[in-house]
Amino acid sequence: MAWWLSFSELFRTFGLILGGGLGIYIAWRRAVAATRQADATLRQAELARRDHVAELFNRAVGQLTDEKLEIRLGAIYTLRQIARDFPDLAKPTLELLSTYLRERAGSYGEGEPPVDVREIINTLRNYLVRQ
């Protein structure tokens, strides 16, 4: 009888260990799956954000040549924000703004710089001062 009780106890303990191990394994598999899902979601969100920024960038490029000052200003502010938020786009954005100064901004005589020129210079200077 004692032998049977010992065997029963051993069997029970083994069952508990096996059950616990199985529980841990299932929890680990679920955690891995959840992490992969989160990573995929994050990648998708980043891709969507970059698509949106590319669209904003392209639109701003077009708006820089608009006749209306307020449209050009909007484009300059958008490009400034892109340069701030996306380090890998900062250089092309600053080069684009420099190109605007070379190719588009005309003479304003002896007066003060127009607001679009001033804002571009401020944007460039913000970067150039800290270099």
Binding site: P87, A90, K91, Y127, V129
Partner: peptide, 13 residues
Amino acid sequence: HGGFSDAEGFELD
């Protein structure tokens, strides 16, 4: 740094 993280190699033209 004026809000800009990096624009390594940018030279004003």
